[in-house]
Design a protein around this nucleic acid. Structure first.
Length: 945
RNA sequence: GCUGAAGUGGUGGAAUUGGUAGACACGUUGGACUUAAAAUCCAAUGUCCAUUAGGACGUACGGGUUCAAGUCCCGUCUUCAGUACCA
């Protein structure tokens, strides 16, 4: 009987599903272990062989942990809100919910064929109202919270109202909008309801504000910073411009420091942590206020205006010879002199015209204009000229810098370009060529009270003196911006928000979910409103607490609902908690469930989410921790980024202007264009099947081909798997031809998990024939052939070598080398003619995480009636590997000449005399007397002659 | 520029963390079986010299430490990924 993987795999997949083999219980005597994959967006294209890579790795680990006695939670679901379904809806009119449902069905079918041990009873879908009810619920919690700097956590907004009513906001230290004015409790109690709401909104963790956003006209929506790559949209590559809009934002900046500190406590890769650190962008320094001198002549007085700058080098304050403001800075208009006004306005206009992208691309051109105004140096009181320049970014720090040309290269270049003086405030340093930026070697000079001080001491002293003057203080600045949370799209979570008199009101949580309304078209309205503006029934009746027709809005209890929807990352920022308790209707996760499961022990996914999903999810986790819904403030203890599996595209070469295609080796003779063709048309030796190509696309039907050696050889290019390159390999085809176990083993065998690597279907025959060999070893013709004979020493050595290696490999996530270990084991056992049950049983348990179907099949043939998945991983017994002797290399003058076998327990002296007496040693020495014999115990023998 | 990762046969990749480099697999070549193909099995396969025995060289490049270096140290080059007028 041959290895009939199709029947075997279908049977066992059915068995697992029917017996709920992998259903996890929320209570168990066993220790818990939570293994999670980043859930997929179910796209219309289905899975390609790259997608399951991480799932297979996590599945192996989950199955292994079950063998090791853990209660394993290994769920799966779908991140099912998203742009592609909406764009498909715009084109075809088909409701995105239908598209999404179909795509999910297709994904599920593909996933099921690979034999994953997911607990599907816990599946979640972010577009399911029962799920997004909780997304909306968390949004409301954020709305009802503010960030208290003193206790360093989120608190109820009602606490804040109490404080305002009893003492005003003078003593509050909160993360809030910068334009907050101070008021007393008397003021507060006098404010109208609308004024109060407007003030509270500036403190809330999610707030409505007019912000400059990244507007993508092609997509008709705003984008978050992490959705923009190189100045164009991540999806589609469309241009992005800056635009002011009223939007919901998330006050993630409140958590900047904790998000940074938390990285120390989690086992994520260094590169990923580094990405997050860069994104948070902490820099420590000082804020300094420069008082603007009155316009025009009289330099003695004070204009009443102050320019606040942020600097990481307050120690260099005596080196300031000018200041630079971003062209967008709000003070520019106020301080510019009439003489300079024309030049300044022209400059501002010119910079505004340049897109963000142009500005980024062009970093070498130095440009700027003098405003005509001066500010007083805080210590010397000398006038400092104020310039504007586009090398200063409005979005970072205060949008203004104190320029120290001797200590900063950009300031230096600017000063050189405009002939501004460059005072030197460093001891023993030449600054005639470039700025001096080495903090460690800094010794300050020419700087009054800072003279002779080194960097650290000088920074402290400068800040101390600034504070004394009341013109500055130590300050930490973060690059992390609040995240814009509104999207002008249909296929996303609706905000549970309606508006009374322009002020946002939350729908009571008992009336969630607020479900998406039906619309005729999924495009923005003619007046530029988001697609929800097309809904007829999109108003909230506060007396009935339900959605009603827009026509009723004039009634006293009916108000318009929010038209925006939430961004893609909303639903994915807490789904890992929802899996713990997916059907709970009272709360997004019960206390009991989350106290038991805590957080993810192992999270596997791509690193494209480094500064998106993985940062936002940490933010929500910390917020929900503050509100005491969760017991831990990091959601994933360990994270692994699996590499991408790349496609190998096939390229044919068309002679320009003709319909003739020339084989790769001959293309240099012609002017050619590259065309990608379906990889299915190519055989393993890169030869093109011309007949199949003619049928593939009509343009090739009448094409001519210039062959080499009678063959058409294609070019190869390794690139991302994508439909448009025709290089997609479908896992279904692989499973059909070789089986799921072969696919699983091969995906692991391709190389280290974290590395990107190209797919090459030809290589799968190696692992496939391993499975066939394994099958053959225990079958004699049609008869299952296992004996009860005692295993030999060699059998046990092979077995225990395998147990040890595979166990180590899984713990270290080097799944690729385990596959080799299995192959070696089967080859050895075949050579040993070992059919012993005592060897096969433990071997199958070791193999089962990798190739579960064949393991189950052989396991049941051994007479077992329970699944192998419940078996305990075999104990490694080192005694089977101990050898009594070992081959030692013997070297002469450092060069290895031969090896000799010696017992392991021999003493140094005995080894020495045995080596000296050895025949080959005698030959090598040929009568000479060696100077020295070096014996490193257990290692090597070196004879120095 | 900065940060992170990495350079090993024709290819993917191993190497017990300083101890016989190239495991395992693909590919290639030769052979067996077959009318033939597929499948399967066997053998060879880092480079060079040698009929053989055997020898020399060899982990991007140049140095160094060590009895011993793919692995550690110094310098150089290259590739990939992320990020950037961040004050």
């Amino acid at each position: 009987m041959n290895y009939d993987f199709k029947t075997i795999e279908a049977n066992w997949q059915k068995y697992w599903a029917e017996n709920k083999t992998f259903k996890a219980e929320n209570n168990s005597e066993k220790p818990k272990y939570y293994v999670l994959d980043m859930f997929p967006y179910p796209s219309g294209a289905g899975l390609h062989v790259g997608h399951p890579l991480g799932y297979i790795a996590s599945d192996i680990y989950a199955r292994y942990k079950r063998h090791k006695g853990f209660n394993v939670l290994h769920p799966q679901g779908y991140d099912s809100f998203g742009l592609p379904a909406e764009q498909y809806a715009i084109q075809t009119g088909q409701h995105p919910a239908i598209t999404t449902k179909e795509n999910i069905a297709r994904y599920r079918e593909q996933l099921d064929k690979i034999g994953f041990s997911f607990d599907w009873s816990r599946e979640v879908r972010t577009s399911d109202p029962d799920y997004y009810k909780w997304t909306q619920w968390i949004f409301i919690q954020l709305f009802n919270s503010w960030y208290d700097i003193l206790t360093d956590k989120a608190r109820d907004i009602s606490d804040l109202e109490t404080i305002f009513a009893t003492e005003g906001n003078g003593n509050i230290q909160a993360v809030c909008d910068e334009d907050i004015t101070v008021f007393t409790e008397v003021d507060w109690n006098r404010f109208s309801s609308k004024e109060k709401q407007s003030i509270l909104l500036k403190y809330r963790l999610t707030y409505l504000a007019e912000t400059e956003v990244n507007w993508c006209p092609e997509l008709g929506t705003v984008l978050a910073n992490d959705e923009i790559v190189n100045g164009v949209s991540e999806r589609g590559g469309y241009p992005v411009i800056r635009k002011k809009m009223t939007q919901w934002s998330m006050r993630i900046s409140a958590y900047a420091e904790r998000l940074l500190q938390g990285l120390e406590t989690i086992d994520w890769t260094d590169s990923l942590k580094e990405s997050q650190r860069n994104w948070i962008g902490k820099s420590v320094g000082a804020s300094v206020t420069f008082n603007v001198l009155p316009l025009e002549e009289d330099l003695g007085g004070d204009s009443g205006l102050g320019i606040e700058v942020f600097t990481t080098r307050p120690d260099t304050i005596f080196g300031v010879s000018f200041m630079t403001l971003a062209p967008e800075h709000e003070l520019v208009a106020k301080i510019t002199t009439s003489a300079q006004k024309e030049a300044v306005d022209a400059y501002i206009e010119a910079t505004a015209k340049r897109s963000e992208r142009e500005r980024m691309a062009d970093v070498k051109t130095i440009s700027g204009v003098f405003t005509g105004a001066y500010a007083a140096h805080p210590f010397t009181k000398e006038p400092v000229p104020i310039w504007i320049g586009d090398y200063v970014l409005a979005g970072y720090g205060t949008g203004a810098v104190m320029a120290v040309p001797c200590g900063d290269q950009r300031d230096y270049d600017f000063a050189k370009h405009f002939n501004i003086e460059i005072p030197n405030i460093f001891e023993g340093v030449d600054i005639s060529k470039e700025a001096f930026t080495d903090k460690e070697k800094t010794v300050i000079g020419n700087s009054d009270f800072l003279n002779g001080l080194k960097y650290k001491k000088a920074v402290k002293t400068a800040i101390y003196e600034l504070e004394k003057l009341g013109q500055g203080e130590g300050k930490t600045n973060y690059r992390l911006r609040d995240a814009v949370f509104s999207r002008q799209r249909y296929w996303g979570e609706p905000f549970p928000v309606y508006y009374i008199d322009g002020m946002p009101q939350m729908i009571d949580t008992s009336h969630l979910p607020l479900e998406l309304p039906e619309v005729e078209k999924y495009l923005p309205t003619e007046t530029g409103e988001p697609p929800l503006g097309r809904a007829d029934d999109w108003a909230w009746d506060t007396s009935k607490n339900e959605v009603v027709s827009n026509d009723l809005i004039d009634h006293k209890t009916v108000f318009p609902l929010e038209l925006n929807t939430m961004p893609g990352w909303a639903g994915s920022s807490f789904y890992f908690n929802r899996y713990m308790d997916p059907n709970n209707e009272e709360v997004f996760v019960s206390k009991e469930a989350v106290d038991y499961w805590q957080n993810i022990d192992l999270y596997i996914g791509g690193n494209e989410h480094a500064t998106g999903h993985l940062l936002y999810a940490r933010f929500w986790q910390k917020f929900l921790f503050d509100k005491e819904y969760l017991p831990v403030d990091e959601f994933a203890k360990k994270l692994i980024n699996q590499g991408m599996i790349l496609g190998t595209s096939a390229i044919i070469y068309r002679i320009s202007g003709t319909n003739t295609y020339v084989s790769k080796g001959l293309k240099s003779k012609y002017e050619t264009e590259d065309l990608r063709v379906d990889v299915g048309l190519i055989d393993s030796s890169d030869e093109l099947n011309i007949d199949a190509l003619r049928e593939w696309q009509p343009q090739f039907e009448k094409a001519d081909f210039e062959l080499e050696d009678g063959k058409y050889i294609v070019g190869r290019e390794v690139e991302k798997m994508s439909k448009r390159w025709f290089n997609v390999v479908n896992p279904d085809e692989i499973v059909e031809q070789y089986g799921a176990d072969s696919l699983r083993l091969y995906e692991m065998f391709l190389g280290p998990l974290e590395q990107s690597k190209p797919w090459n279907t030809a290589g799968i025959t190696g692992v496939h024939s391993f499975l066939k060999k394994l099958w053959k070893l225990y079958h004699n013709g049609d008869v299952f052939n296992v004996t009860n004979v005692e295993p030999t020493k060699d059998n046990l050595k092979t077995l225990h070598k395998t147990i040890k290696k595979v166990e180590e490999d899984i713990e270290n996530f080097s799944f690729n080398t385990s596959v080799s270990t299995f192959m070696i084991a089967v080859n050895e056992l075949t050579a040993q003619k070992c059919t012993s049950r005592a060897v096969l049983e433990p071997l199958l348990v070791v193999l089962s995480p990798y190739a579960p179907h064949i393991a189950e099949e052989l396991w049941s043939k051994l007479g077992h009636t329970t699944s192998i998945a419940t078996m305990t991983f075999p104990e490694f017994d080192a005694s089977h590997l101990v050898e009594s002797s070992k081959n030692y290399p013997v070297s002469f003058n450092g060069k290895t000449k031969f090896t000799m076998e010696l017992p392991l327990d021999m003493s140094k002296e005995d080894i020495e005399s045995a080596v000296m007496a050895h025949e080959k040693t005698q030959q090598q020495l040929a009568g000479r007397i060696p100077k020295k014999v070096i014996v490193v115990p257990g290692r090597i023998i070196n004879i120095v002659g």
